[in-house]
């Protein structure tokens, strides 16, 4: 097939955006679920849940788009990575089932409210941990022979993937705290500020550990970062991370309601960038590049046409739905 236009960079960008939107949107959404377990009373739990009730469904849709986008743009990567993380995916999906139905069930099933409180809280936490494990396994890479994953379904379980699982709990917790600071007031907001500070410390510890561990584990990544002149070009990433961390910390301890959330997002963008720099151009680390795993030109072109039209429209009406529910959580909107 003659190559008129290389769609791979475009699809890499689109998929990157989709995954990032997922991590950001369902990140704060799951993070709110994690912090939910620390809420002092029913009234606080109602407010916390109502802060995401109208939007969680849309946030989770980005997960489906991320999965399907990977299948569409880089099917070989999908076919190798997903079976390799068989059990983390299973656990994530079942945890998402519990936390998803908890919204409606908790409200309708007053006798078992506590049970559904737990389902929402643990479901959010377990789903987050499982996603972190998937991320860690992905960075470590998989055993591959030919076009298939050739390891076992328990290969995912390593100290590194456990670490990234815990790291993501803190990360989503930070985003969740940022969201709650934005959407609540008074005691609830103060609690969220405190929780955000704890999560931020956890996040920084995790970023530090992963940043040391990854180059030790993988010499290719070490040479990517620490060889002259790369070190000059890439130095802004860790420097900006330090700056974002400082800004987030100060925002959590100021009166600002927006900056903690923005700071959390900034830290995620930079971590995301760090991983991308480490792995590029591999989509199945050690085995296949983005180009090798890409679907056919016709496939990518056909989907691109629609995506370029639909994605802006989606962003428009999704923004509108967020705008409808803007401001602090109102007691008369949502489940009551």
């Amino acid at each position: 097939m003659s190559q008129v236009l290389d769609f791979v960079p475009i699809w890499t960008l689109i998929l990157g955006i989709a995954v990032f939107f997922y991590v950001l949107l369902d990140g704060f959404d799951l993070g709110v679920g994690i912090l939910y377990g620390f809420a002092p009373n029913t009234a606080a739990r109602n407010t916390i849940m109502n802060s995401i009730a109208p939007i969680w469904d849309g946030n989770e849709t980005w997960l489906v788009l991320g999965g399907l986008g990977l299948l569409a743009a880089f099917p070989l990567a999908f076919a190798i990575i997903i079976p390799a993380v068989y059990f983390p995916i299973l656990v994530m999906l079942l945890a998402l089932v519990f936390r998803g139905v908890a919204f409606e069930f908790r409200f309708r099933d007053a006798e078992h409210k506590t049970f559904w409180d737990h389902a929402f809280n643990y479901g959010s936490g377990i789903a987050t941990f499982a996603q972190g494990v998937v991320l860690g396994s992905f960075i470590q890479g998989f055993r591959v022979s030919g076009r298939v994953f050739s390891g076992t379904s328990f290969d995912f379980l390593t100290p590194f993937s456990i670490l990234t699982g815990i790291a993501l709990l803190f990360g989503y917790g930070l985003l969740g705290a940022g969201w709650l600071i934005l959407k609540t007031e008074g005691d609830l907001q103060d609690t969220a500020r405190h929780q955000g500070s704890v999560c931020l410390i956890g996040v920084l510890a995790a970023i530090g550990t992963v940043s040391v561990w990854t180059p030790i584990m993988n010499p290719a990544i070490a040479s990517r970062w620490f060889v002259f002149p790369n070190i000059l070009f890439l130095a802004p990433v860790p420097l900006a991370t330090a700056a974002a961390a400082l800004l987030t910390w100060r925002a959590l301890h100021s009166r600002s309601e927006v900056l903690p959330f923005v700071g959390g997002i900034g830290l995620f963008v930079l971590s995301f960038t760090g991983i991308a720099v480490s792995l590029y151009p591999m989509i199945v680390p050690h085995h296949f590049t983005l180009w090798e795993a890409a679907s056919s030109d016709r496939t990518q072109a056909f989907l691109l046409v629609g995506t370029l039209v639909l994605l802006p429209v989606i962003l428009m009406y999704t923004s509108w739905s967020y705008w409808v529910f803007r401001g602090k959580v109102r007691a008369d909107i949502g489940y009551h």
């Binding site: 788009l65 569409a72 679907s295 496939t299 995506t307 989606i314």
Partner: peptide
């Protein structure tokens, strides 16, 4: 995937987001 994945992806792009929002 080369044949079917765009159909799945278009389901997400045209339907799931619309419903959810």
């Amino acid at each position: 995937a080369n044949v079917l994945s765009p159909l799945f992806a278009y389901e997400g792009l045209t339907a799931f987001f619309l419903e959810a929002a």
